[in-house]
Nucleic acid binder design. Sequence first.
RNA 1: CGGGGCGUAGCGCAGUCUGGUCAGCGCGCCUGCCUUGGGAGCAGGAGGUCGGCGGUUCAAAUCCGCCCGCCCCGACCA
Length: 478
Amino acid sequence: MSQETKITPRAQDYNQWYIDVIQAAEMADYSPVKGCMVIRPTGYALWENIQRVLDGMFKDTGHVNAYFPLLIPESFFKKEAEHVEGFAPECAVVTHGGGQKLEEPLFIRPTSETIIWSMYKRWIASHRDLPILINQWANVVRWEMRTRLFLRTTEFLWQEGHTAHATEAEAEEETRRMLGVYQRLAEDHLAIPVVPGLKSDREKFAGAVRTYCIEAMMQDHRALQAGTSHMLGQNFARAFDVTFQDDAGQRQLVWATSWGVSTRLIGALIMAHSDDKGLVVPPRIAATKAVVIPILGKKADPAVVLAEARKLADETGLGRGIQVDARENQSPGWKYNHWEQRGVPVRIELGPRDIDSGQAVLVRRDTGEKKPVPRAGIAQALADLLEDIHRSLYARAKAYRDEFTFDVDSADEFRQKLESPGGFLRTHWCGDGVCEGKVQEETKATIRCIPLDAKPEQGACPFCGKPSTRRVIYAKAY
RNA sequence: CGGGGCGUAGCGCAGUCUGGUCAGCGCGCCUGCCUUGGGAGCAGGAGGUCGGCGGUUCAAAUCCGCCCGCCCCGACCA
């Protein structure tokens, strides 16, 4: 009995399971440099598809792409007080170049607000120059103490949108619009249900006025921030002296937003859907949506079966989205396992019996259910099945999240529920950051967000007893 | 930075306590035959400065010292 990688069951060791899934699917590998990772083709293909989908949505909402440099003068960072305080400790700094010590150290970008706003100052003079709606796809570096594949690595890939507006209302609208884009990406493409919400002041981006986010629940009931959108107010315009003349001839500070999602989404995707057999990739984002396994044996001419398999792949109309595993040295069972570990949504088995009866067997990755389907209707049946898998993954993830979301009204209950089973605790909050900090210190849970759809509700903060007007979501987070 | 674990073939490990045919096993890989509807079988074969440096000894993967690296857990963070 041959084995590839064995995967630790979730129930035994969730963290090890996560690592095993990534290894088994060959999504990533550790790099020679601590905290950095190599994204292997299987993992990168997911990122490429996320990029493709998001990039389209950005362009549909009027944005354009540009590229700003990796190296940022140290002095730029110091211009926005809260920003430098938040990021300086985790910045990598270049001190030498060309064999000489540099006059001014250069920060490797942990995010690009400062370099971008230094440029916006040169580009903005009139209200006719606004809005500026620029996005960039880039890598950034943040020197983290503790790293995890995809979820937190020293260098990671992301996109960062940076927009400039004439009015507060417009900037706020943009911030919310992009949050909506992220929610659509998560739910409609990654099949991950998310809670859109507002961050508390403690949790907001360094330099922002307000930070919105989408929060997802992982299978260990912990929360994962899957995307953020920041209303930056006039903070960066003030720091970089970016003003424009409005139509009345008045000079005004520009309003800003920034928003981003990263390769962390791949970690979210893994932890939202995968199982003890390995990766499960939602069909809409999968590079390989189906794989044909020809059953090659002596019962029929292997060349004929293989030719039929290739023909079948063609008939599906999936193009590059389908491949045929033609290897003759591996058994069908081995291949089933191989592709299951890689999360391919649908396996199509085609053997002599199927060819004789004009059918193929569709096997879905999420449930393992097998279904014979007539060859004539294969393209439609497959398309339907892929959509059904998407819906079913989403529904399952949502039901799971709801099952572990609790209304909690006392501190004791809070501690109990957090300990077991864990999850999203919908709790009243007094609004005080100090109180929030104490809860975090004691329980390790943080306010993940104030849900945007939170209904006004009179209550009391279970920790300090002060009045509260709506519930927030507390959870342990990644 | 603390706590725990680990470093022996591509991967997973045994051997270390009790120095001496301990350079070994499984998987993978290569060749051939045979097989293929859930991780096949047989035969042959390639592959290792035992993380590094130093020490003890007639003799070190094994004992001692120092160093390096990695993983997991905790404090910071998308």
